[in-house]
Simulated scan of single mutants.
Amino acid sequence: MARLQARPFVCRALLGFVCLSGLAVEVTVPSEPLSTPMGKTAELSCTYSTSVRDSFVLEWSFVQPGKPVSASHPILYFTNGHLYPTGSKAERASLLRNPPTGGVASLKLTDVRPSDTGTYLCQVNNPPDFYTNGLGLINLTVLVPPNRPLCSQSGTTSVGGSAALRCSSSEGAPKPVYNWVHLGSPTPSPDSMVQDEVSGQLILTNLSLTSSGTYRCVASNQMGSASCEITLSVTDSSEGRVAGTLIGVLLGVLLLSVAAFCLIRFQKERKKTPKETYGGSDLREDATAPGVSEQTSMRADYSKGLLERSPSASTLTAKSKLSMVV
């Protein structure tokens, strides 16, 4: 009796499972990421299965790399037999089959750009088939050749020191790898060169004069390559000290030469200056002869003064002497 009661329950469960499986919306997308060269057309495949033909709704949306699905932006809608493109990709987005009947809901995106890299969501809703979310995710990478990288250097560029050369491209998908080469000869020792192809850095250790020269960095990926060059000049510090000493000696000699020239010219100018000289016969009237005392000089001046002040007295004395003789 118990077995008879259990059989109807099992039958009802199996019937319910069959019915539910027919009401599920199934969306199928490629499991592998999709890549398309820049400027080309990308076709994002999306197929679906459903048991209901009315109230069919299809939505395509886009989310940037590194962001959650909840931050997606709509690209287009299809509902009630009409297609409604929207968003920044509206002019380049369309359905591969319009209307999306027969289980094909693939998206076509023309003239792809680097900003088109991200995750695309294909979602199908077809009430009353609500038993699955009907969502498929497709990762698209737009392939871009690397642009011309920027070369730079840092470190001590003297003999025995270390220097780092860096190379980086702002564009390129997939991310480019970097390779450094030394142009010309002689080539530095491989032991003194360590490069990282991912970061684009070249480390030069134990620098020597042969490390000088031009270095070229090549950034490449499957879409192409680009390069930049930088010149490294390694100096010898001992030669610098010798050069500094030599310059100091030359400056000292120059200063001494200028000082000697100025002194010689001064001596010449001094010899050209005339001096006052007196001949043996050019005696001053008021000069005092050697050996004559100051008192004698004063008497002579006094007598001379009397003679100059008393001309009439001398005349009278002469006249009186003449009268006496008569």
Rank of each mutant, 00 (worst) to 15 (best):
V144H: 02
T205S: 12
G244E: 15
S94P: 01
T187F: 00
W60E: 11
A24Q: 12
A13R: 10
R148H: 05
M298F: 11
S303Q: 14
T119N: 08
R113F: 07
G87F: 04
V29Y: 02
Q195G: 09
K275N: 08
A93Y: 06
G224S: 02
W60M: 05
S323D: 09
Y278V: 15
L316E: 13
V29P: 02
Y48H: 07
T86C: 09
S31N: 14
S192C: 04
P290N: 06
I138S: 00
Y77T: 11
V10M: 14
I203C: 01
V159G: 03
Y178Q: 01
Q195F: 07
S154I: 00
K67L: 08
M1W: 11
C262N: 05
T214H: 03
E294C: 09
L283Y: 04
P74F: 06
N126G: 08
D286W: 10
L4G: 11
E239I: 13
Y77E: 14
L306G: 08
Y302E: 14
S106E: 07
K40E: 14
T28P: 08
S115T: 13
P146Y: 05
A13F: 15
L256N: 12
P33V: 05
C262S: 13
V104N: 15
Q64T: 10
T79K: 10
P30G: 11
S154L: 07
A173T: 00
A259H: 13
Q267H: 14
S238H: 13
A260T: 05
A287V: 07
A13E: 13
A13M: 15
R241N: 09
F78G: 04
A6K: 06
S293Q: 09
V27R: 03
S21E: 14
S212T: 11
S55A: 12
S237R: 11
I264L: 09
S158I: 08
P311N: 11
D301T: 06
S314Y: 09
P290K: 12
Q201G: 03
L307N: 08
T205D: 00
L107T: 06
D54P: 01
V10N: 04
C167E: 00
E197Q: 09
M38D: 00
Q267K: 10
S35L: 03
S45H: 03
G240I: 15
P74T: 07
R92Q: 12
S170W: 00
A300G: 08
R7P: 04
S323G: 09
K304S: 13
S303W: 13
P68F: 02
G66A: 00
C19T: 11
S310L: 05
G213R: 04
G66C: 01
V63C: 05
S225W: 09
L209A: 13
R97V: 15
P65H: 04
T214K: 11
P146L: 00
G252T: 03
P188K: 03
A173D: 02
L307C: 07
S61D: 05
D196H: 04
R216G: 05
T141R: 06
S211F: 03
A105W: 00
L232Y: 05
L4A: 15
K67R: 15
L307G: 02
A289F: 12
T119M: 04
V253A: 14
E26Y: 14
H73V: 13
N221A: 01
E171V: 02
L183N: 04
S220Q: 07
S61F: 01
E197D: 09
G160F: 09
S169D: 02
P176I: 01
T157A: 15
G305A: 15
